[in-house]
Amino acid sequence: MGQTETPARWLQTPRRRPAARGWRSSYARPGAAAMSPGIIAYLLFSLVPALGTFVISMTNYSGIPGLPVRFVGLGNFASMVSSAAGGFLPSLEITMTFAVSVTLVQNVAALGLAVLLRNRFPLVGLMRALIFLPAALGVTINGILWLLIFTPNQGPAASVLAVFHRSSAFFGSPSAALPLVIFVQIWANVGFTTLIYLASMDNIPEDYYDAARLDGAGRWHLFRGVTYPLISTAMTVSILLAAVGSMNVYDIIYVLTGGVNNTMTLGMYMFNTSFVGSGDLGLGAAVSVMMFVLTLVVALPLQWILRRREVSV
């Protein structure tokens, strides 16, 4: 871009009273016109489909060409939660286990790592980069990597267990699969959470610590008294991101287990009802709606609690 042509004097013009109404500016008309591609794209690919989810959830839409589409009211929701036919309740339980474990462990681990990696020191940069690496590798590579490591009769994980005279089917085991999937999810995302905490800790002035040290505060008290309260905003953000992200998870499940062995989270259940087996898009949309409700039910109070804590400190 022609940086040199940018007239630097614009930056130095004397301050003028701002125009009371922005839309009187000569940039107003072209500005408004130029908004249209973005707004059209947003309506088309975000808003309309989101509203569509609600509409489709109340139909028997199967997607089979030529088959009539009927309005079924809340029928999909009823059959979803009925104990006889519905897979919703088992998936809800799995999803909550997944989300609570991931949110807790990921944040505690990230906080610990952030404390370890917060000061500038040789090799700290490398460590920070390493934990962030899974985000760059992407879900498929991450999944394949751990499938390789957790090969039941051959991989490094099996060799470690063999030392203790144990073995496991790992992702093929109904009891081990969910904890392992939770582990991989945390492994893939802990770097990002750590970086949020690190960025937040970087903003704490060193004087605070010096003052606390003068008062004779020990290492734990420094953390409890200075670091912890001052990173509460970052904590709100990363807890919410982890909670919402893990409640809607399906990509990593898709790669690691496909939803078998007690790993059928709601996201996976939604995908399977919509696109696999009988392929019921109406029911799938209803599951999406329930996931949305669940996210609101969990995230809004959670946010309220976290924000209140921020204020009270």
Binding site: M35, I39, Y42, L44, F45, S46, L47, V48, P49, A50, G52, T53, F54, I56, G63, N248, G267, M270, F271, S274, L281, G284, A285, S288, V289, M291, F292, T295, L296
Partner: peptide, 21 residues
Amino acid sequence: IYALFLAGFFLPVSIIPLFIE
């Protein structure tokens, strides 16, 4: 318009309507 975009953060997963669209 800003409020509309803000709402986008809280919308449900809409892969099914997107597929039809």
